[in-house]
Design a binder for these strands. Structure first.
Length: 750
RNA sequence: GGACGGCUAGCUCAAUCGGCAGAGUGUCGCAUUCACAUUGCGAAGGUUAUUGGUUCAAGUCCAAUGCCGUCCACCA
């Protein structure tokens, strides 16, 4: 047989992936049927973090996919009942705003010009295209996912899960509708959750002034235009300067607007900052909203959804907040009310997806109550009993504290707890069109009234009803992902460990959630929230957090910097296996991964080294059929030296296995590299040449036997990391008849 | 303001329980009929950011400092 001198990944990869797919072994049901695992075997399951259908896979996805595939292939070879479910995420706001901007650019139209139905058609076709690209890219990475179980966060089954989850939480009293101050994105024309707001530092001006001459307390603000909505002034209870005014109400005229200002004492006020007095604007500041709640101050909205002044009688009506600010300042100055003007550093809030400047506004929205007591309905969790009073916050916290979920690296547990401590009710309604429509029905033409009775769940048959026009936060459906992909709510949990056809019983809780640390809050925390309350289980036993991929200079990859690496381009140039190795070696959990073309090249060299070492062994195997058969059946006795070599291999197998089992993939990868190249190729093969070319027959056979063993066992060890290359070489190696794909070979005994 | 991470060879990073500081890449030298030039062999390259402490032993543990970075909070 002719074996080329160089390994050609482009040729091998496509053919091999098809071979794997055809074999059916990505599907655990087939593995059971073909006796490659059994119903009694422990399960190992991962649900692929669904990539957003906003475009193509980036290198971060490649890290995740590789990490997951290594684990999945390892446990499949260890004969676990192994399932990896693929899918994609509709990514509501991200996708909608992307399509909106494309339509704006190409047709100069906005979504209202098209109408809800037509617009959604456009978004769906964009999503479909993006989906198809993503699927082909996941395949290119070699991911051994079970395509037969593919899911989409917005498909029919997942919608059923969303509706059921919404209704269940509402029935438990954990979802409510109400007017609260929320983050409003004027650009995207929707509310967003606290986590979707990003703060960036900028320079601002802090103005200190009086509302009017007769008002005794000066106040300070960076946004004078919001002061049109002030209904109070808060001071510290211990502040002697202002004590005499506390409890009094003043009527003042500020910039032509009549204000009713009540002076209140609140311990949150820092007497040493500014003037020690806060002008309270309940409608346009989170902190002020809280103060107003505590002291029963009136809420007066002065800014609307378009970030314009909304007071019809005011001279500033209809002006943008920035313009109004200028004019109001002029007035303050003209009236001699300005005391001080100083430059300060401040953080401005922007919507993560659209970049719009966040305007806090009171609005009627849907919320998940995280601090509210409710009666826990399940008996399957050890840290909270059935019938016990608890809160969602407590559930989220205890799941990790009681080690039902372990976060790797562990230091992120602290970050997680801290986030929960600061958590406010989760605003889940969005005023966008793309996403799961809120499953609530109001009597016709009454959807905007606050105190109206409504119907949650399926549309009622009788009477005139209309569905809530809003959609759900995309993370609401993502939070259900581990079980919505496994058949919930049609499938139910029961006492059994295995029930044919019931994925929820067979694979939930999943074993590992592998994702980037940047979505710990967005996703991981919310999955724990939803799963504990809805299923009485945790979603996964381990959370493995990988780092963010950075360029050679340590910069985050971004389109604007032009340093984005296309994983597929790299895979095509250097081979998928080389890309996979370079993403794993040197990438410990939670730490950022720096990648460069040189690093990938080094792994391409390694792939070629493996190829050529294998080539040598294949060419040096004994020609006599009888001897060859003995070697294949591992029947040649090893001499003393080769026995030592075999022992080295066992030790190596043990170490690599141990590293993978403990999620130290970066170490396992490095050891595989080092052992193959510098122990096996440099030393063992070189030393064996003497026996093979000039040795006595028994030494020659012993050497061949050892090299054969070393190679075949190492191919197994390397397979999860470099699946294509190893599978290709495996197909060239003479072996016993029952052996077929390396994919489903048994992992070496330790 | 709070929390977390990093600082190890020119560069990118490892070092599992506290036990001989090690890879890749780059640099320099040598080698090409015999698996592999996408290679092999060899060399140079280190006060592990700084200061102090614990210990038989510290890159690793403790305390402090400096620089770089990240997340959270949001002082109006």
């Amino acid at each position: 047989m002719e074996i080329p001198k160089n390994y050609n990944p482009q040729e091998a990869e496509k053919e091999i992936y098809e071979k794997w797919s055809k074999s059916g072994f990505f599907n655990p049901d087939v593995c059971i049927e073909k006796k490659k695992t059994s119903p009694d075997a422990p399960h190992f399951s991962i649900i692929l973090p669904p990539p957003n259908v906003t475009g193509v896979l980036h290198i971060g996805h490649a890290v995740g996919t590789t990490t997951e595939d290594i684990l999945v292939r390892f446990y499949r070879m260890k004969r676990y009942r192994t399932l990896w479910v693929p899918g994609t995420d509709h990514a509501a706001i991200a996708t909608q705003s992307k399509v909106e901007s494309i339509i704006q650019k190409q047709e100069k139209k906005n979504r209202h010009d098209l109408g809800r139905e037509e617009f959604l058609k456009r978004v769906n076709s964009f999503a479909q295209e993006s989906h198809d690209t993503i699927v082909s890219q996941i395949k290119k990475m070699g991911a051994s996912v079970d395509w037969g179980r593919e899911a989409y966060t917005l498909d029919k089954k997942r919608n059923n899960a969303v509706v059921t989850a919404f209704k269940t939480l509402h029935d438990l009293g954990l979802i409510y509708r109400g007017i609260r101050i929320i983050n409003w994105d004027p650009k995207g024309q929707t509310s967003v959750s606290d986590d979707e707001v990003k703060h960036e530092e900028s320079e601002g001006t802090l103005y200190t002034f009086y509302y009017e001459k007769d008002f005794p307390i000066p106040i300070a603000t960076t946004r004078p235009e919001t002061k049109l909505g002030d209904t109070g002034v808060a001071v510290n209870p211990k502040d002697k300067r202002y004590k005499k005014y506390v409890g009094k109400t003043f009527r003042v005229n500020f910039a032509g607007e009549e204000l009713k200002i009540k002076v209140v004492a609140d311990k949150e006020v820092d007497p040493s900052f500014g003037t020690g007095a806060v002008g309270v604007t309940p409608a346009h500041s989170f902190v002020d909203w809280e103060i107003a709640n505590r002291h029963d101050l009136e809420v007066k909205q002065v800014i609307n959804e378009y970030a314009k002044i909304s007071l019809p009688k005011s001279e500033f009506f209809g002006l943008k907040t920035t313009k109004a600010r200028e004019l109001i300042l002029e007035k303050i100055k003209k009236n001699g009310l300005l005391l001080k003007e100083e430059k300060i550093k401040q953080n401005i809030a922007r919507a993560e997806r659209t970049g719009g400047l966040i305007e806090p506004l009171p609005k009627l929205q849907w919320f998940v109550a995280v601090n509210k007591d409710f009666t826990f309905p399940h008996s399957s969790l050890s840290f909270v009993k059935k019938g016990e009073k608890t809160t969602l916050k407590k559930l989220m916290k205890l799941a990790v504290k009681k080690k039902h979920v372990s976060i790797l690296p562990q230091r992120f547990e602290k970050t997680y707890f801290h986030w929960i401590d600061n958590l406010r009710d989760w605003c889940i309604s969005r005023q966008i069109w793309f996403g799961h429509r809120i499953p609530v029905y109001y009597p016709k033409d009454n959807s905007k009234k606050e105190n109206i009775s409504f119907f949650v769940g399926e549309k009622p048959l009788e009477g005139e009803w209309e569905q809530d026009p809003d959609t759900l936060d995309t993370w609401f459906s993502s939070a259900l992902w581990t079980f919505s992909t496994l058949g919930w709510p049609e499938k139910k949990k029961n006492e059994k460990k295995y029930e044919e056809g019931n994925d929820l019983v067979n694979y939930h809780p999943t074993t590992v959630l592998e994702t980037g640390y940047d979505i710990l809050f967005f996703w991981v925390a919310r999955m724990i929230l939803m799963t504990t309350v809805l299923l009485g289980e945790v979603p996964f036993s381990y959370t493995y957090l990988h780092g963010i991929v950075r360029d050679k200079a340590g910069r985050k990859m971004s389109k604007s910097l032009g340093n984005v690496m296309d994983p597929i381009g790299i895979a095509e140039k250097y081979g998928t296996d080389a890309l996979r190795m370079s993403l794993i070696i040197g990438a410990s959990p939670g730490n950022d991964i720096k990648i460069s073309e040189e690093k990938i090249k080094a792994q391409k060299h390694f792939a070629n080294k493996i190829w050529n070492a294998s080539r040598f062994i294949l060419l040096s195997l004994p020609e006599k059929e009888k001897d060859l058969q003995k070697i294949i059946q591992k029947k040649i006795p090893l001499n003393k030296k080769d026995t030592t070599r075999a022992k080295k291999l066992s030790k190596h197998i043990k170490e690599v296995t141990n590293d993978i089992e403990n999620f130290r993939l970066y170490l396992a990868g490095e050891k595989l590299y080092h052992y193959f190249w510098h122990t096996f190729a440099d030393i063992m093969i070189e030393e064996s040449k003497e026996s093979i070319y000039q040795g006595k027959e028994e030494d020659r056979l012993s050497a061949s036997q050892n090299l054969y063993l070393q190679l075949t066992e190492q191919l197994k060890l390397l397979h999860p990391f470099m699946p294509f290359l190893t599978e290709k070489i495996w197909s060239l190696i003479p072996k016993t008849a029952e052996k077929d794909l390396l994919l489903i070979e048994k992992w070496p005994e330790t």
